[in-house]
Every structure is written in structure tokens, then in C-alpha cells.
């Protein structure tokens, strides 16, 4: 899907951080990608390769930490893991669990020189 836009967003964040920290090189980028964030990690790596070339983060290692989906049933309040958007509540069977975790994408950290 929109992995190229996301890769550009990551590059901007990484470059801003590197500038602020007066770094000379970015060795590693640690990403947190939610299981429900509708992003394909392989496609994102592919786009990052492209987008980071000629930047301060050229050749940086990219670590992806997958954050599993977790939600709460709007009917009975049960907390449950969510594999897919249409996962029903394991207690009462209601659909449309409120997503609490696993739908976001963040740059968690960068390793700088």
C-alpha cells in the first residue's frame, strides 16, 4: 500500500533526530509496527532502502518490532487480542472490538554515531 509515504515519513524523523543530536551517521533504525497498522514490513524495508540512499541513514539496519493487536469489547468490556479487524469478542461474540494497541507505527529509536 502506501509504504513509500511511510518510508519518507521515517526518513524525515530520522534526519531531524540526527541533526538535533549532531550525529554523523545513523547505524540502525528501530521501528514499532502494529499488527493492525495495515503496513507490509517487507514492502516498507524495500521502500526504506530506496528512500534512505544518499541520506545520513544510508545502509542503516532496520529493526521492526511487531506490536500485536489488543482491544476491548464494547459490549462486555473483555480485553482480548485482535488478529484481524473482524475478530469477535472471545467472551460474548460481539464484533467491532475497540482497538487499544497495535494500530500505530512509530520510530522507537535510532542508533547514532
Amino acid at each position: 500500500m502506501h509504504e513509500l509515504s511511510l518510508a519518507e515519513g521515517i526518513r524525515d524523523i530520522v534526519e531531524e533526530t540526527a541533526t538535533m543530536e549532531a550525529a554523523t551517521r545513523v547505524r540502525r533504525i528501530v521501528l514499532e509496527i502494529g499488527a493492525l497498522a495495515a503496513v507490509d514490513a517487507d514492502a516498507l524495508r524495500f521502500c526504506l532502502d530506496e528512500v534512505l540512499s544518499d541520506s545520513i541513514a544510508e545502509g542503516a539496519e532496520v529493526d521492526v518490532i511487531e506490536v500485536p493487536g489488543r482491544g476491548r469489547c464494547r459490549q462486555c468490556g473483555t480485553l482480548a487480542p485482535i488478529d484481524e479487524r473482524h475478530t469477535p469478542c472471545p467472551s460474548c461474540g460481539a464484533y467491532g472490538l475497540e482497538v487499544l494497541e497495535g494500530d500505530r507505527m512509530r520510530v522507537q529509536a535510532v542508533e547514532l554515531e
Partner: peptide, 26 residues
């Protein structure tokens, strides 16, 4: 701004917490 201190900082890797949403700008 990225080059001027390179000799002082050469090869000293450090982990910097960022914790920013990739879609934050949008």
C-alpha cells in the same frame, strides 16, 4: 551541521530514543 564535529564523535555509537509516530506529521 552534521559534519563539523565528526572527528570528535567518530565511531561512538549511541542509542537515541525517538518515539515518534510515523504518521505524526500528517
Amino acid at each position: 551541521g552534521l559534519d563539523h564535529e565528526s572527528t570528535d564523535r567518530a565511531s561512538v555509537a549511541r542509542l537515541q530514543r525517538v518515539e515518534r509516530d510515523i504518521l505524526g506529521k500528517n
